[in-house]
Design a protein around this nucleic acid. Structure first.
Lengths: 145, 145
DNA sequence: TGATAATCTGACGTTGACGTAAAGATGAGC
DNA sequence: GCTCATCTTTACGTCAACGTCAGATTATCA
């Protein structure tokens, strides 16, 4: 084992930039899988969970998605640990292909959203640059003769 | 006069994709200048106000800014109608330069935010592309011999 | 082993960004 | 001038996304 000591909620909260309350809330909403409770009642996490949390907050903030929209994108399903496990545990080529097939559309959906946002932001950037140019031109007109 | 008939709140609301309530709320918060009340009690708007509203909602949605943050960026001040008017009405070169000088930083601030967002989104896009590649590779591995 | 810190599960509180309903005022068209 | 749609202010309602507090439980460590 490396760092797989199993972190508790406070640690992964801090390391992923949210509060414990947020983590419990996301779990309740189904955005995070129900955390394992190692030998006690306390939730236990790994590095993978930190990655997942960061990804959630990124999609939330960068794409402006509500938690409901996040869930209905089945972001939850996609990376979900047990899916990966099933993938590794099964010997069936068919089941593996099926799992891959189901992951693909989610990525495409996200890519679509990201690119629309990118386009909109680039348009905004363009207009801001225009304005800046205009300002500078006016300034030159006032300063020059 | 061209289209300067003076629109009422319902019209500019629809044309800018918000509700009348939102417009009054933004006015109350100082995000929009207090609308003129032509000869009566009803608020009166022009095309400029539509542009302004669209810009506000864009900054709000694309940059994820709260209304408070929007206001404190003095987005309100910058495009504000009376500023433009002062610019055109004054004969003083100094005052004009001053107005230009004060407009510039706001644009720079916004450009900064837009570009940070762009960078973050591009990073996200990159990671999604990575994942897609990985999926496709695995699929080939399963299909090919 | 006992004290101290962190976590647990409810459950109620808060905040931002509007929605909505009431009751009266305004205005465009006939 | 009358009517009906639109607008006015005022005020309470709502919803998402957590914050916060209480009281009990669990882990860590001197």
């Amino acid at each position: 084992m490396t760092t797989t000591t199993g972190m508790r909620i406070g640690e992964i909260a801090e390391r992923s930039g949210v509060t414990p309350r947020t983590i419990r809330y996301y779990e309740e909403l189904g955005l995070l899988p129900r955390a394992e409770r190692a030998q006690g009642k306390h939730r236990t996490y790994t590095e993978v969970d930190i990655e997942r949390l960061r990804e959630l907050t990124r999609l939330r903030d960068l794409l402006g998605l509500s938690l409901d929209e996040l869930r209905s994108m089945i972001v939850a399903e996609e990376v979900r640990a047990d899916v990966r496990q099933r993938f590794h545990e099964t010997d069936s080529r068919e089941e593996r292909l099926d799992l891959l097939d189901r992951a693909q559309p989610h990525i495409e959906t996200q890519l679509g959203l990201v690119r629309r946002r990118l386009a909109e932001l680039q348009e905004l950037e363009g207009e801001l640059l225009e304005r800046r140019k205009l300002l500078q031109r006016r300034r030159r007109e006032l300063n020059g003769p």
